[in-house]
């Protein structure tokens, strides 16, 4: 025991007990949140959808503060060259706006940054307000936020087929994402939620094409979501899958682990450079 450590005084004991109780309470609150929090959040969501006028006003305010600098007044866009010239938002539809904010791609602090998946940068209510406001600029235009309630019942087989037909060309067979051009990398879908996947399909963020009802009907959309979630969650029967980037990672393992280990074995089994051959050699 280090001599310098002082014995705990009764006062210390008391403080420790208080700390323990506080920690316990915090844990309890966290637990309650986990168990009931989902329901509470959902209830709030419903409430927020009702008061549309207040929501619109709030949306206009936040839009003015956070979006207008690049996207222009009332979503008209900014006809400026360079990254500060944001595209017009009139008619892009709720799915696009909701996706961009929900996945933290927007609002950007620095227009030179590349759009990437981040935690949402504002509250859920603010997001809904902006979506409502931008939608009100051109009501009924653009893809709406898709309803994919039924994705858990969707046909996985259809999902695999549709994913391979429409998505794998850029996102890869394991949805790991890959470079698809000079500036763009298709997203890794490892962290996307079902709704985000569906919104991306409908709205086509960035260079991704938008897939409307005619190309990807509702049933196929749910199936694609189901397949992507299955891809992530199904236990891999073959063992560890490093990076799942196909033969690239496989070749790496074969060389480093396979031949690498065998080279060590060879080195231990055989004679080293400075050793002489035994005298009982052959002919």
């Amino acid at each position: 025991m280090p001599a310098a450590a002082p014995r705990p005084t009764p006062d210390r004991h008391r403080r420790r007990r208080a700390l323990a109780i506080a920690t316990g309470l915090a844990l309890l609150v966290a637990l309650v949140n986990v168990v009931f929090g989902g329901g509470l959040a959902a209830a709030q969501e419903d409430e927020a959808d009702i008061s549309s006028d207040a929501l619109l006003e709030r949306g206009a305010q936040i839009y003015g503060a956070q979006c207008a600098l690049c996207h222009g007044e009332a979503g008209r866009g900014l006809p400026v060259d360079g990254p500060d010239g944001g595209p017009p938002l009139i008619g892009v539809g709720p799915a696009s706006v909701d996706f961009m904010i929900r996945t933290g791609r927007m609002p950007l602090d620095n227009a030179n940054e590349r759009l990437s998946h981040r935690p949402q940068q504002m509250t859920d209510e603010d997001r809904r307000a902006i979506v409502a406001y931008v939608t009100s600029l051109a009501p009924g235009e653009g893809p709406g936020i898709p309803d994919i309630e039924g994705w858990q019942q969707a046909d996985l087989s259809r999902g695999l087929h549709q994913f391979t037909t429409h998505c794998a060309a850029c996102h890869g067979p394991t949805a790991a994402g890959v470079a698809v051009g000079q500036r763009d990398v298709s997203s890794n879908l490892e962290v996307s939620t079902p709704l985000e996947i569906a919104e991306a399909v409908r709205s086509g963020p960035g260079v991704m094409p938008a897939f409307n009802e005619e190309i990807v009907p509702q049933q196929d959309l749910e199936a694609i979501v189901a397949w992507v979630m299955d891809l992530r969650e199904r236990e891999s029967p073959g063992g560890l899958a490093i990076g799942r980037s196909g033969p690239v990672s496989e070749g790496f393992i074969a060389w480093v682990l396979g031949l690498g280990l065998l080279m060590i074995v060879m080195y231990l089994l055989g004679e080293k450079a400075d050793e002489e051959v035994d005298d009982h050699g052959g002919e």
Binding site: L160, T164, V178, P247, E250
Partner: peptide, 25 residues
């Protein structure tokens, strides 16, 4: 270690292709 998980790639259809598509090393 998983190698060549063909069940993820699905059956061959001449009109489909995906990226990245590499051969064995």
């Amino acid at each position: 270690f998983e190698i060549n998980p063909v069940w993820l790639y699905g059956p061959y259809e001449p009109f489909q292709v995906f990226a990245p598509a590499q051969p064995d090393w």
